[in-house]
């Protein structure tokens, strides 16, 4: 069997595993409620008085910070805890095929969650006349951000059999990736460091790179950032999984 049928088979199993447990529905409901809460209450959607989804997308990184590690924490830790990893990797697949397949499945699940926020798009289009190009860019950015956080959760879940530890580790790393570009932090840093140092540090932040998408600008440097974090995390996941078995 070729590469793609195998990846599709594993991804299909993985995705349906989300929906076979009630956790998926709980997750979707929590995500949608929080997204609504952030957009309309904290984000002040109506008070802004503009036809845009800025208040929706600005809060996305903070929402994903908690929810994406929750989705990704079981990816490998569960396989290792139950011993099914032995079953999976002795079937005719390579480790990287399995990693990609599981990652893609979870990413698809997050994409479904994002897609279910469509009522806000309808709302804003009904109330006013927003720039839908910007909204699409905002969604693309959010999806890439979700993928980036997910790849980190994938890595931390390969490190431990314990899902809680995987969750906390992923959350810490993602938090770091947010904070280094968070305005209050960069302002504080600029008090004792040169501008170029602060800029260099901030360039590692997801906030810095998602900004463009939220303004409707697709910059290849931003794309490159997200994809390279994903590639690095998934590659390291492979190294970690191999090292468990190498002894």
């Amino acid at each position: 069997m070729g590469t793609w049928p195998v990846i599709r088979t594993i991804a299909k199993r993985e995705l349906s595993a989300y929906f076979e447990s009630p956790v998926a529905y709980v997750f979707l409901v929590v995500f949608l409620l929080l997204a609504g809460f952030f957009t309309f209450s904290l984000g002040g959607f109506f008070e802004l008085g503009e036809a845009s989804l800025n208040s929706f997308f600005t809060w996305m990184p903070w929402l994903f910070l908690f929810l994406v590690p929750a989705v990704g924490m079981r990816l490998w830790s569960e396989e290792r805890r139950l011993g099914t990893i032995e079953l999976l990797l002795t079937m005719p697949v390579t480790t990287w095929q399995a990693i990609i397949a599981k990652f893609v499945a979870s990413w698809a699940f997050l994409a479904i969650a994002l897609a279910l926020t469509f009522p806000v798009v309808i709302t804003v289009n009904w109330l006013g006349d927003p720039d839908n190009g910007v909204i699409i860019a905002g969604y693309v950015g959010s999806l890439l951000l979700a993928g980036t956080f997910l790849s980190i959760a994938c890595l931390t879940s390969a490190l431990t059999r314990n899902q809680v530890i995987a969750f906390i580790l992923a959350l810490m790393i993602c938090l770091l990736l947010i904070l280094v570009g968070f305005a209050p932090v960069t302002t504080m840093l600029s008090r004792f460091a040169d501008v170029w140092v602060v800029d260099t540090i901030a360039s590692f932040s997801v906030l810095t790179h998602i900004e463009g998408f939220q303004k409707g600008v697709l910059d290849t440097r931003d794309l490159l950032f997200f994809f390279s974090v994903m590639a690095f995390s998934l590659f390291t996941t492979g190294v970690v999984l191999r090292s468990h078995r190498a002894g």
Binding site: R13, A17, E20, S21, L82, G83, T84, E86, L87, T90
Partner: peptide
């Protein structure tokens, strides 16, 4: 070419 039954017979519990 191989079939394998690992120790403790693991399987995906929710399936």
């Amino acid at each position: 070419t191989m079939g394998y039954l690992p120790e403790a017979a693991p399987s995906y519990q929710e399936m």
